[in-house]
């Protein structure tokens, strides 16, 4: 019967491939979904031009990446993790406990976080204070800034009289996303600190400060739109009143349908982010397990490809994909880190 032949084929496949499990001949990369679109381009370029196996890249989020990366040393653990933030001391500790002691930290470039709306509406001119007031769960009472009240603002005009009288409706990433972490840190915290009373709180009661500044409203003003930024772009097209939050590369690919909001007077363009004048940008990293560099084939080649000018340089292909390159001296610094395999100091 046919079933038996299928079974036989299956058993045969199992038998043939069983010995292949012992070693790994490809690079295993995990980590941030923000770095994923850039790392994958490098991996593909590396695989196609050198004839080595193309590295495998999982998009697990920065936190998930570190968890896997710090699991231990050996072929069952990833060689590299991408991150849209620097490694935390607690993660370093986990790493050390599991024997992952020599880690190479490489900064690869910057990513801008943009607020954007549909082309059919007028572009927004926002300050971080406006954004904080529009999106926080609790805000200072306009009558008495000492007092914290539940967010009363329903339209942008209520927040700032120069803004249009449209309903506040912001589509953004969920708390699990690195983009959300960066947004909270770079926009909400900064907007929050424009209030002297809250700024004072940062020193006296950091917990309360975080609660006020980092809690996003849940009454419909902020809509968690999932990790899929394409979806947000489509929703913005359908609803001209809505504003979306996502990474710069998605704005870059969709300039014909959406426009970036101006923040603190700066437009979210490639040049402004690269110059560092656009306020909402963050560095991107990857972390390498030094113990794996000489064990897994192709590690050095991949690192060299990443650090080449044609990849992360001013006119490199990563810039084409929307990553903001580092300035010349930073590129030189991290290029040397890679060539010398200089590890981080363990705290």
């Amino acid at each position: 019967m046919k079933v038996t032949s299928i079974l036989a084929a299956g058993a045969l496949t199992l038998a043939i491939t069983a010995p292949a499990m012992a070693a790994r001949d490809y690079i295993s990369i995990v980590g941030s979904s923000t770095v994923y679109p850039f790392a994958t381009v490098v991996a593909e370029q590396f695989g196609k031009t050198t004839g080595s196996k193309t590295p495998k890249i999982e998009s697990t989020g920065s936190g998930g990446g570190f968890k896997l990366f710090c699991g231990g040393v050996g072929v069952n653990f990833p060689d590299i993790t991408n991150a849209s933030r620097a490694i935390k001391p607690s993660e370093m500790k986990t790493c050390a406990e599991n024997g992952v002691k020599d880690i190479i930290e490489v900064k690869i470039g910057y990513d801008g976080i943009v607020l954007a709306n549909a082309k059919s509406a007028a572009p927004l001119q926002l300050t971080r204070k406006d954004i904080f007031l529009a999106l926080a769960k609790d805000v200072p009472d306009p009558a008495n800034p000492e007092k914290i009240i539940a967010n009363p603002y329903k339209t942008w005009k209520e927040v700032n009289s120069s803004l249009p009288a449209t309903k506040i409706e912001v589509l953004g990433p969920p708390p699990t996303s690195g983009t959300r972490d960066a947004f909270v840190e770079l926009v909400m915290d900064a907007g929050c600190e424009t209030f002297p009373s809250i700024k004072a709180m940062k020193k006296s009661d950091e917990k309360a400060f975080k609660a006020v500044c980092q809690t996003v409203r849940e009454d419909g003003g902020y809509v968690e739109a999932g990790e899929n930024d394409n979806l947000i772009v489509q929703k913005l097209q359908a609803n001209p009143d809505a504003v979306g939050i996502f990474g710069f590369s998605f704005l870059d690919q969709n300039t014909d349908v959406i426009q970036g909001s101006i923040i603190e007077g700066e437009k979210p363009t490639f040049e402004e982010i690269a110059k560092g004048t656009y306020p909402v940008s963050r560095p991107l990293f990857f972390y390498v397990k030094k113990a794996h560099v000489d064990v897994i084939p192709g590690m050095k080649g991949y690192l060299a490809e990443f650090a080449s000018e044609k990849a992360w340089g001013q006119d490199g292909y990563l810039a084409d994909k929307g990553m903001i390159p580092m300035p010349q001296d930073e590129r030189k610094k991290y290029g040397e880190v890679i060539s010398s395999l200089k590890t981080m100091e363990m705290k």
Binding site: T13, L14, I16, T17, A20, M21, Y26, S28, V30, Y36, A39, T40, A43, E44, G47, K48, K53, T54, K56, I57, E58, S59
Partner: peptide
């Protein structure tokens, strides 16, 4: 189990990503 990943090479056997 990590199958949601960027994989360029065509898998040749059941132990390839």
């Amino acid at each position: 189990i990590g199958m949601v990943a960027f994989i360029v090479d065509i898998p040749g056997s059941i132990t390839d990503p």
